[in-house]
Amino acid sequence: MYGIINKAIEGLVTENFGSEKWDQIKVQSGIKEDRFLSNDHYEDATTYQLIGAASHVLGISQNEILLAFGKYWILNTGHQHYGTLMHAGGTSLKEFLLNLPNFHSRVMLIYPSITPPDFKVFTITDKELHLYYYSTRPGLTYFAEGLIVGLAESFQETIAVVLLQQRVGERDPDIFKISWV
């Protein structure tokens, strides 16, 4: 994964729990890097180790951390780095979600080594759609849910997210039902 992901985890921890906790998490994770560079590529394991260590040090479940991380990613990192692009991605959550596949294709052009997730969107009704989230990486279901919640907050929309199906195999999607209240 790109360093921007690990930097985002660092941001989430330091902004909410302080830099001492981040130092403890780094020690706990056994990672030697002093700092991450956004555009450098790091092993996926580094990110998983950081999430695991954060859960241990902060006493919060990994799923909760991933959920918070998804939200943080949209509301902080996404806006800082892709603000305009995200803004240009749609004027509403629905429009943005419909454009997600193209959005990630564009991201891949910027980050050539990235393995971005893929999305499919099925409109069920005006007030409900199903989002299929495909990722080559396991265990990121709650991160995806955090992204959806963060996006809704970003577009100032109130939604309900229900996980209809969780990824089992590498080709299986996580399926979320998103409904507007």
């Binding site: 305009t84 692009l85 803004h87 240009a88 991605g89 749609g90 004027t91 454009n99 193209n102 959005f103 564009r106």
Partner: peptide, 8 residues
């Protein structure tokens, strides 16, 4: 992009 109200 936003200045000219353009979207993707």
């Amino acid at each position: 992009l936003s200045r000219y109200s353009l979207s993707l």
